[in-house]
Design a protein around this nucleic acid. Structure first.
Lengths: 217, 217, 217, 217
DNA sequence: TCTTAACCGAGACGGTACGTCCGGTCTTTTT
DNA sequence: AAAAAGACCGGACGTACCGTCTCGGTTAAGA
């Protein structure tokens, strides 16, 4: 069951590379990470990297996957409204402040220039995120809180799209006002578009700032 | 009184550089564009580029701004619903198929790795796009089609966010179904989330595929 | 005395350039002197330099000529032996320690790579130096201290050749022992080749070290 | 135990670089030789040159050393007079017409601007040349043709100095008349300064007849 | 037990592009 | 008309990484 060589690849080297890549992205930013730098930091030969990965983004996809193992299950609060809000708080935390969120943003950015990376993200990374995003909706459907013919993926796009838009494009923080509007819009069937002061909907303390300062957009 | 030199910079060189940059992005893709390549294509010395721009993204921001001069005014159809739909069709066309849309996607991607570029985009590029996105809403507010206390920017995020999300992140085409849902959601105060078959709302012929094939995210 | 233009060339600019060139060679060494540097130091436009000189060596030839105006006349000591020795002491001082000697060495060095400069040196600079080198011999001939058919230029080569050789090629200091040998060789018709200890001939205090340290050859 | 890498540098690349450098100096002259040009001609990456050499002169010193491997031994003619003349003929040939002589002249010239190169020449190149120049003198001393206390290095300077002076400084050809004078001067203990026709010493084909000459002092 | 094949570290190699410097030419404005 | 200013094209500089390629050493399956 090994891979055609005598003693297989070195798990030590693999982990050292993924760890080094993660650390370097956090320390110096994606743009300054080089394969030579990863190799040096990991104490590994360049050839060992090229033997198992095709590019630095390839490494980062693996590193991102390794980070995502901690798939914590969302608690079931019993109502669509609160379930969704809890999930969105978690999503914002991931996108804006977590280390793996920084990797995700870097990969999403790089995918704009690299069709191959884009394909790999769509095939391997996004489905997992989408599955999580669907959870509150699927539970709601099971409870009968959604119309039978609701297109859940379409609803998910409408809810998470504005969040990604703010994080990746405008760089504005995702405010509680936006989350309120999204949640009540999905729950009550219409977007909540009054000013924040006029919104008596459920509130949260989320509105966290981006950790790294200006590197969203 | 003058600006330190006697005859200032060469407009010829400036235009040649912006044109060359635009062309090269369209021909070989952002990732393969180099400053040396731009200089060669423009028939300009590298030093001339470095004298006036700091990086290739700096050039592209200028090139994008030059392209955007053709600020076509949106026709006023008389109703929020149709105004918004026309604008979104135009937005999708810009993001998915136009050359300057390709430049925009590249810049948005690069901004994930480059805080300085991100800041410049937020300061110079996005406000212009936002102004256009607001037009249908502002007209509707003037007509009394929106509540007096509506937060237009929040509404804009909810409508254009999912479109950018699909273009930049999932790479899925922006379907008429999504546009229908966004328009009717904004117009009638709730997202339209039934399956496409069950949605008899206003349709359009928009749902064009991305030109370049797989290069979305 | 000017050249047929309205205002003639600026003597101010000419002197500033020559002075700047001289200073820069003394301060940073010939190799690091650039035309841009000379222009900046002289407070002169680059074009002004290119209008009047063809290269930085061209400037230095002029600067060297300007320095050489102080053609001090050699005192006539009444005897070939002492005349020659006094002249050689002066020659060594020029070559090894003077600022204009540094310029001369730089030009002689550059002439190895630049035939045009070599030609100019042979046409304009060397004849003046040769004329000075001949003075002791011509006086001696006039006094009848030399055979009537002596080839003075050949004798000069034999006397100054070893001095230039040490300064330009070996980089060794020109010792009193060498000067003694050259003088007595020329005067008595044979080179003095005994060891320094065994040479009771006329001595001098010349043997100065090179100022700049190791920059001879 | 080993030196940090396992297979060391490429001898192929080293030889290609030295050969290319030699060829280029011969073809286009030292001043026009560039490291990029050498790299291109040698089919080698620039970085490979910078890994092993510090400058183009550093390459040429190596190339000169490689050329000098063909240390042909001087034939022993049995007499100082003829030995020395044969050696000087060889020396003039080297300095004036050989390819490696062109490299030597270029290095000697550059050394006027570059103390580091000057030091390297004095340490590595000149001692080998000096050793060859001493051969006729050392043989003569062994035969008893020179005084026991003769300072051979001083004699060498007196003999080869004028030759280098003509080659490097005045640019005049080294005539048989000069060589005759140097040889007979060294052999008979005095410089031969009469016109060639009046010189009864070893002859060359040159001389133009003038009046006969007597003996000087 | 002894080969031996695949892995590993190290790092030299041919390349490409970087960002800087300077050479020479040009154009504009001032003196 | 010459000078100051400085932008311009060209091209070499020396550096940083790219991705490929030996090397010599190590390790574990299989003879």
């Amino acid at each position: 069951m090994h891979r055609g060589n005598r003693h297989g690849r070195s798990e030590t080297a693999r982990e050292a590379v993924l760890q080094a890549a993660d650390d370097l992205v956090a320390e110096i930013g994606y743009a300054k990470v080089t394969i030579e730098g990863i190799a040096a930091r990991a104490g590994v030969a360049k050839q060992t990297i090229y033997r198992w990965w095709r590019s630095k983004t390839d490494i980062l996809v693996d590193a991102f996957a390794a980070d995502s193992v901690q798939e914590l299950t969302l608690p079931d609060t019993g109502a669509f409204h609160t379930d969704l809000r809890a999930h969105l708080d978690e999503l914002v935390r991931f996108l804006e402040v977590s280390d793996s969120g920084a990797v995700f943003r870097a990969l999403a950015g790089q995918a704009q220039h690299d069709p191959e990376l884009a394909a790999r993200l769509r095939a391997e990374v996004l489905p997992r995120l989408r599955a999580r995003d669907r959870v509150p909706f699927d539970r709601a459907a099971a409870r009968g809180e959604l119309p039978a013919d609701a297109d859940v993926d379409l609803l998910v796009d409408q809810v998470v799209g504005p969040i990604h838009f703010r994080v990746l494009v405008t760089g504005e923080p995702v405010t509680p006002a936006l989350l309120d509007a999204l949640v009540t819009g999905a729950a009550r069937g219409r977007p909540e578009a009054r000013t924040a002061a006029g919104t008596p909907g459920p509130r949260s303390g989320t509105g966290v700032g981006r950790s790294g300062g200006g590197e969203g957009c």
